[in-house]
């Protein structure tokens, strides 16, 4: 009962947040749909745990145990973490490059231009300025 309430709370939170982002035009419709379907599925399993038994018997077959489900879920989570890491790393690098370029504008006249061209040749020479 407690687990169902917790899952219900988080599902409502994520769906509401995702809807708000979609409404403001900051999230694409497929992304919004993905989160709604994902969290409704999680909520369905929390409210009706027997769904997993039905899935095992009717869809996957008795050879697929709970361990397989957990294993697949873990791999999926690790994949998501990796994707998130790549994305934040790229954003951080872009932010750092931007902040450096803005800072170099503070240099006395003429020198900022030179700094920018140096920075540009450096960017071409190396993928990690």
């Amino acid at each position: 009962m407690l687990a169902t309430a917790i899952v219900g709370f988080f599902a409502a939170l994520v769906i509401a947040k995702s809807f708000d982002e979609f409404r403001r035009g900051r999230e694409a419709f497929p992304v919004f749909l993905f989160w709604v379907i994902t969290w409704l599925a999680v909520l369905l399993v929390a409210v009706f745990p027997s769904v997993t038994v039905w899935l095992r018997q009717e869809v996957f077959g008795p050879a697929v145990g709970l361990g397989t489900f957990f294993g697949i879920a873990l791999v999926f989570l690790l994949f998501l973490s990796y994707r998130l890491y790549l994305k934040t790393d790229r954003v951080e690098r872009d932010l750092n490059a931007l902040i450096t370029q803005l800072a170099l504008r503070d240099l006395p006249g003429g020198q900022e231009e030179k700094a920018r061209s140096n920075q540009g040749s450096r960017d071409q020479a190396s993928p990690h300025p």
Binding site: L95, N96, I99, T100, L102, L104, D106, L107, Q119
Partner: peptide
Amino acid sequence: VRHRLNRGVGLARRTGLAA
């Protein structure tokens, strides 16, 4: 030269070297 956001001493040194 001023970083518009606090990014850490490492980036500050790199900016300093570029300057």
